[in-house]
């Protein structure tokens, strides 16, 4: 078992001027190298949880916090946010709001200069991330002229240049067209293979199903389920009871099973579905 990197213990949080807790007794441990998807309806507390992990809650957004979050053993409510940001990078829904420089290269280099890193190190990191997100040829373009997907990739590159061990993507694909969203998911999958820990808050279950190995389901500030991605994402009745749309291929197999088709387990992606349905058709 690999080392724990985020340990959340009995965490509760109430925003200032609010009565209803945004998080209620949330506990989990995320280990190095895991790819965790967080799903749930709006108001479930998903973004609140992300902010509690990187210390923005309670240090910048205030409220009443109980329990604890530890990031590599450091308490996130007391460790300066800029120190945590070197361990945890976060990309949010509206990347445009995060971009402030006049070209992509500057956007990536600026925070590194603020860390007073040596020139060669800045150059090395820049070249690495700009190639990783496939924006090498666009490097001198103004972010304004980029597509939505490219802007999100710039935001991801800027976050990765800090060399965080954990990357949090908080609905980072929700404003992208389907191909732009797929690009971000593929990138997240590649980062996982390189050993990064990925936490992805996501409504797009079809895409999430491709790379996540663990799913945390939240509702009204609580964790409802936490476990194997395949098991949770193929639980059609459970997801639908929360108003979540399960992968279409899983739903198709679910209906076939109700009509008597005997699946060993419900498929989660297109390849699995094609194989298992073809096999069952032949055997009939």
């Amino acid at each position: 078992m690999s080392k724990p990197i985020i340990v959340c213990s009995d965490l509760s949080f109430v925003y200032k001027d609010s009565k209803k807790p945004a998080l209620k007794n949330v506990s989990f441990t995320i280990s190095e190298g895991e790819f965790v998807g967080i799903i749930g309806p709006t108001g479930a507390g998903k973004s609140t949880l992300c902010w509690a992990i990187n210390g923005v809650i309670p240090q910048i957004m205030q409220g009443k916090l109980k329990g604890s979050v530890e990031v590599k053993g450091k308490p996130s409510n007391k460790t300066p946010v800029d120190e945590i940001s070197q361990i945890i990078g976060i990309v949010q829904q509206d990347a445009e709001a995060q971009l402030l420089m006049t070209d992509i290269e500057k956007e990536i280099v600026f925070p590194l200069e603020n860390l007073s890193l040596p020139r060669e190190e800045i150059h090395r990191r820049l070249e690495y991330v700009i190639n990783l997100v496939n924006l090498d040829e666009e490097r001198y373009r103004h972010p304004f002229y980029l597509s939505g997907g490219q802007k999100q990739r710039v935001a991801v590159a800027a976050a990765l240049a800090m060399e965080p061990e954990v990357l949090i993507l908080d609905e980072a694909t929700s404003e992208l067209d389907p191909v732009g969203a797929e690009e971000i998911h593929e990138l997240a999958g590649r980062l996982k293979k390189e050993g990064k820990t990925i936490i992805m808050v996501e409504h797009n279950i079809d895409e999430l199903a491709k790379h996540a190995d663990r799913i945390i389901v939240m509702n009204q500030g609580e964790i409802l389920r936490d476990g194997d991605a395949h098991e949770i994402l193929t639980d059609v009745n459970f997801l639908q009871s929360l108003g979540i749309y399960p992968p279409q291929v899983t739903q198709t197999a679910f209906h076939l099973r109700e009509a008597g088709w005997q699946f060993e387990r419900l498929p989660l992606n297109l390849v699995e579905a094609t194989q298992s349905i073809s096999a069952l058709r032949k055997s009939q």
Binding site: D177, P178, V179, G180, E182, D206, P247, Q248, V249, T252, L270, A273, T274, I277, S278, R281
Partner: peptide, 15 residues
């Protein structure tokens, strides 16, 4: 055009 057909259409196409 940057559009992915829904998975049910891809599944229908192969099956």
């Amino acid at each position: 055009a940057g559009i992915k057909a829904p998975d049910v259409y891809l599944l229908a196409r192969s099956l």
